[in-house]
Simulated scan of single mutants.
Amino acid sequence: MFKGLGQMGDMAKMMKTAKEMQTKMQQLQDDLETMTVTGESGAGLVKATATAKGELKALDIDPSIFDPNEKEVVEDLILAAIKDAQARAAEKHQEEMGKITEGLGLPADFKMPF
């Protein structure tokens, strides 16, 4: 299509690639809001569910851990489950970003500025 135009053809290709990346990034941002991950602690006694963007959506606590004498243990389990969910959300986010960058011919570990 741009044969013989030299660098103009390269510029058009870069612009097209940039537009594709912008569209895919917007779709990914939308998708990350609906993708969920679940982190857990205490062998599943506490589960935290978050979006792939890291927003906490739900907390499920097995009633068997409610012992007034073990308040600190329960708090630690809750925090551990939330941290696990956040770590899984970050991993999922990175995984999905990797799919986009690879699809555009960029290295899988390419870090986007956002």
Rank of each mutant, 00 (worst) to 15 (best):
K3F: 13
G6H: 01
M8R: 09
D10A: 10
A12H: 12
M14A: 11
M14G: 08
M14H: 04
K16M: 14
A18Y: 10
K19M: 15
E20I: 07
M21D: 09
M21T: 05
Q22G: 11
Q22Y: 07
T23Y: 07
T23Q: 13
T23D: 15
M25I: 08
Q27N: 09
D31N: 02
L32N: 02
T36F: 07
T36E: 10
T36G: 12
T38A: 14
G39Q: 01
G42Q: 03
A43T: 14
A43H: 09
G44E: 07
L45M: 15
V46E: 02
T49Y: 05
T49S: 10
A50F: 03
T51F: 04
T51D: 02
K53W: 00
K53N: 04
G54C: 03
G54P: 02
K57R: 12
K57V: 02
A58N: 13
A58R: 05
L59W: 04
D62S: 15
P63Q: 15
P63S: 14
S64T: 15
S64W: 15
F66M: 15
D67M: 10
P68T: 10
E70S: 13
E70Q: 14
E72C: 11
E72R: 10
V73W: 11
D76A: 13
D76H: 12
L77S: 07
I78S: 06
L79E: 06
A80L: 04
A81I: 06
K83S: 10
K83M: 04
A85K: 01
A87S: 06
A87F: 00
R88A: 09
A89Q: 04
A90V: 00
K92C: 00
Q94R: 06
Q94L: 12
M97Y: 06
G98S: 14
G98N: 10
G98H: 11
K99S: 13
I100D: 06
T101G: 03
T101F: 12
T101C: 05
E102F: 00
E102V: 03
G103L: 02
L104P: 00
G105T: 08
L106I: 00
L106Y: 08
P107R: 03
P107D: 01
F110R: 05
M112D: 07
M112Q: 06
M112G: 08
P113V: 06
P113S: 00
P113I: 05
